[in-house]
Structure formats: C-alpha cells, structure tokens
C-alpha cells in the first residue's frame, strides 16, 4: 500500500464506511425500528428532536453519556466494562472495510473468516465480558440465557453467510472473499437451484438476525418482567450508552452484511452509482422493516421454546441449504 492508499484506508476506517458512518447509521436504524414499532402499536414514536424525531436516538445517547450518576456494586469493574465495549465497537468498525461499501475495496482469499470473527463474534463476546464485569444476579441469569441462544444463532448466522460466499467463490483464487461474493451473488440468484439455496439461507439469516439483536421473540436474555434487563441490568449512565451503541452497531452491520453477501449489495446496478446506492438503501430498509415487523408481531419465547424455534426455523433451513449446495456442486 502506498501513501494515498494508507490515507484512503484511514478515511475508510474512521469516516466512511467506518466509525462515523456506522455510528450515524446505527442510530438511524434504531430510530427506524422505534418508529416502525410505534406505528404497529398506534403510537407516535420519536417525534420531537430533529425533523420527524430523527435525532432522538442521538439525544438519548448524548444524555446517557453525560449522566453524572453511576450505580455500581462492590464487585463492579467499570473500567473493564468500558474497555470491552469500546473494543467491540472498534472491532465492528475495523471489519466494515472488508464490505465493498466505500471507495477502497480490500479483498483477499478467506477474508470472510476475518470479517466474521471481527464483525460478529467479537462484539457479542465483548457484550458478555462487559456484562460479567458488572456482576449481579440478574446479569448472570441474562448472560447464561444469552450464551444459550448464541450456541444456535451464531452457527446459523455463520453458515447462512458462508453458503453464498462458498458458492460464489469456490472456483476463484479469492475463495471466501466477502467482496467477490458481493459482486457475484446476483448471478447465483438467477439460477433456480442456487436461488432456492440462497432463499433458505436468507430465511435462516433473518431468524438469526432477530436473535442476534435480542428482539422478540428471542428477547429472553433481556426479559424485563422476569430479570429486569438481563445482561445489561447493571449498566447505567455512559456505560449504558456504550452498550446500547454496540448493540445497535452489531444489528446494523449484521443487516449490512446480509445486504452485501446474500442480496448482492448494489446489484443489479454498479457499485457507487446512483442506482447502486438507491438499491443498497432499498434492500437495507426492507430488511429493517422485516426485523421490526417480526419484533412487533411476536411475543417472547421461553428459553427452551426460543432454542427449539431457532433450531427449527434457522438450523434446519441452513442444514438443507448446505446439503443442497454440496449436491449442486458435486453431482
């Protein structure tokens, strides 16, 4: 990399599509989910701060960040919790440069594994570590529930994204490259067998997105009636602001990942053209609408119900998808 490429890399990491872009997009996604939920429940939703209340999530974040009172117990390790949450945010924004969103397009063989580890495993691991740094009876229960759900949702999410990557790049020198997958996956949608495989993966991914975001019906780790707020019960003030931001960033990047890896990003238009940008926005909004709709039409499952439904509607489609993929390639 020469100097201009390093400068571009810094811009991509810190501004677009990195930290600043993801920060703004995650707050906007939170606004969208809240507004859609309000519509479903015949409420107004965020309305006062900014045009149509669009700045409300930012104001919530700012207020939490400026809170002077911190509630903590004898065993709280606030610095550790802050550090782990910041590491989670950094990992997400560092990994986003592998998605072909901006001007700089980094690609290489097997970069899907790096991307998945940084953008999906690290954030949730950091949320768990931050929760355990602020211990409490409800926190322990929430974390144990979260980890139980992750045992199914993370493998489903990994495999659901792995299948398009594999199908699109297994003959290419850049095997399992996120960027190459994004460029080629639309061709796969035109093949009926591959389209069926991708559709099954997409269904499994939407289900696992719901559980990754801990939205109903998979919100048992933060069940308010039983365990107050579960894994984030002991977070308050600036720490709660960081935890909410990391949660929103995780959801945002997960949706963006599905948009680019499974739905082809700007396809059928070219990257960074007006049509391509509009297509990405459209796909993103549709996925947010689907997630918010599922959030509002389901009640909360008990833990064993949640695990069973995840296995049934996430695990089985993705397993069929794997078998079909292998059959399609080798038969």
């Amino acid at each position: 990399m020469d100097v201009s490429q390093v400068a571009l890399f810094l811009f991509s990491t810190l501004v677009f599509p990195g930290f600043l872009f993801i920060f703004i997009l995650s707050l906007f996604t939170q606004y969208l989910v809240r507004k859609i939920s309000a519509r479903y429940q015949k409420r107004m939703g965020p309305s006062y701060i900014g045009p149509y209340g669009v700045l409300q999530p930012f104001m919530d974040f700012w207020k939490l960040l400026r809170v002077k009172e911190v509630v903590r117990s004898r065993y709280s390790m606030q610095r550790v919790a802050e550090l782990t949450l910041l590491i989670g945010i950094a990992c997400i924004t560092g990994a986003i440069v592998l998605l072909p969103i901006g001007v700089l397009n980094i690609r290489g063989p097997l970069d899907y594994l790096v991307f998945f580890y940084m953008a999906s495993v690290m954030p949730i691991l950091m949320i768990v570590l931050a929760s355990l740094s602020m211990p409490g009876p409800y926190t322990s229960l929430g974390v144990s529930r979260l980890l139980s759900i992750l045992t199914i949702s993370e493998p489903v999410y990994f495999t659901g994204l792995f299948i398009p990557c594999f199908l699109a790049t297994y003959r290419d020198p850049l095997v399992l490259s996120v960027s190459m997958t994004s460029h080629r996956v639309m061709d796969l949608w035109l093949n009926p067998v591959a389209a069926l495989i991708l559709l099954l993966s997409l269904i499994a991914l939407v289900i696992s997105l719901q559980s990754k975001a801990m939205y109903p019906p998979f919100n048992i780790p933060e069940a308010e009636q039983e365990i107050i707020a579960g894994f984030e019960t002991e977070f308050s003030g600036p720490l709660l602001a960081l935890a909410s931001l990391l949660h929103d960033m995780d959801l945002t990047v997960s949706i963006l990942t599905v948009v680019y890896i499974v739905l082809g990003g700007p396809a059928p238009f070219q990257h960074l053209t007006l049509g391509g940008i509009l297509m990405v926005i459209l796909k993103y909004l549709v996925l947010v609408l689907v997630v918010a709709t599922i959030k509002n039409i389901f009640g909360r499952y008990r833990l064993e119900q949640a695990l069973m439904q995840l296995l049934k509607y996430g695990g089985i489609p993705v397993l069929i998808s794997v078998i079909l993929s292998l059959a399609w390639i080798y038969l």
Partner: peptide, 30 residues
C-alpha cells in the same frame, strides 16, 4: 474504486490495525 488484493494474514493485520486505531479514537472521544 481502488481495489487492493491481500494475503489473509496481511488482511487480518490491516483490520486489526484499523480496529486499534478506531479503539484509540473512540476511547479518546468517550
């Protein structure tokens, strides 16, 4: 669009460097 093809280990290092830089900026801002 500038395309850069990298070895997996270099990709991992670059992403880690970017994450470290973001961590520094985010922690300072926080």
């Amino acid at each position: 669009i500038i395309e850069v093809v990298m070895d997996p280990s270099i990709t991992a290092l670059i992403i880690l460097a970017g994450s470290g830089l973001t961590l520094l900026i985010a922690a300072t801002l926080y």
